[in-house]
Design a protein around this nucleic acid. Structure first.
Length: 229
DNA sequence: CGGCTTTGACCTGCGC
DNA sequence: GCGCAGGTCAAAGCCG
């Protein structure tokens, strides 16, 4: 229990999308939406966070311990359907996951088997991927929304630099890069093959600047902006 | 004319 | 080593 808490502490610095907005709501909603989500999500309610740090920890802890469980909720009409770690994001969690696995391993085979089963991949394959990928990649964060528009207004300015047709999907994946000089943040936008109404947005890296003033949601609390990005 | 999107080519990592 | 698929580059074109 204590070690688990220590593990979660390390997740505080994981980046989070700033000023996330939901066009489907007809108005801009900042990260207050996420706070609202936490308080209204049954699976997270028991750990209702009172601070931004706790919010992030709780989200990420839930994402890693409940990889198959969507954190579904209804944000007053906005349809943030899930916030989860995708399988292809496995490397993002490399350091934390390997540590987590070592903890589990010391706790017994049953725990390890149970954890691997939850992740849905073999232990050997997973560790191989982690080892191969974690050295170079920026941290990533992805979420899924139901929206008619592909690109959600997150307060930053993006330039499209590529588009790719992904195998077994009808819809192309678009690649965007932050237009700010010296900022290497990227995001990928794609629609879910099973349900084209769903938009998967993946952020990679950390912004080294504030959101564009003209795009920034003036209603969003400054302490959240400072924390999340 | 500058900024952005499009799109085919190229690069890279991974599985076999 | 080879082939495949994802990711990136960069030239060309579009638009305000």
């Amino acid at each position: 229990m204590i070690r688990s808490m220590q593990l979660q502490r390390r997740w505080v610095f994981f980046p989070f999308p700033p000023n996330l907005t939901f066009p489907s709501m007809g108005c801009n909603q900042s990260l207050k939406a996420f706070t609202s989500m936490i308080s209204t999500t049954p699976s997270l309610a028991t750990d209702a966070p009172s601070t931004a740090a706790n919010l992030t920890e709780t989200l990420l802890a839930s994402a890693i311990t409940k990889p198959r469980e969507d954190l579904s909720c209804n944000l007053g009409g906005a349809q943030l359907l899930s916030l989860q770690r995708s399988s292809e994001n496995l490397w993002v969690w490399g350091d934390h996951l390997s540590e987590f696995l070592s903890i589990k391993r010391s706790g017994g085979d049953h725990d390890r088997h149970e954890h691997n089963h939850k992740l849905g991949v073999s232990h050997a394959m997973k560790m191989k991927k982690i080892k191969a990928r974690r050295k170079v990649r920026e941290p990533r964060f992805c979420f899924k929304t139901m929206s008619d528009v592909d690109v959600l207004d997150d307060g930053y300015k993006w330039r499209k630099y590529g588009q790719k047709v992904v195998k077994n999907t009808q819809h192309p994946r678009s690649y965007y890069r932050c237009t700010q000089d010296n900022c290497r943040v990227k995001k990928r936008v794609e629609r879910l093959a099973e349900d084209p109404r769903m938009v998967i947005t993946t952020y990679e890296g950390r912004h080294v600047h504030s959101p564009s003033p003209e795009l920034e949601d003036s209603q969003s609390p400054s302490h959240l902006n400072n924390f999340f990005w």
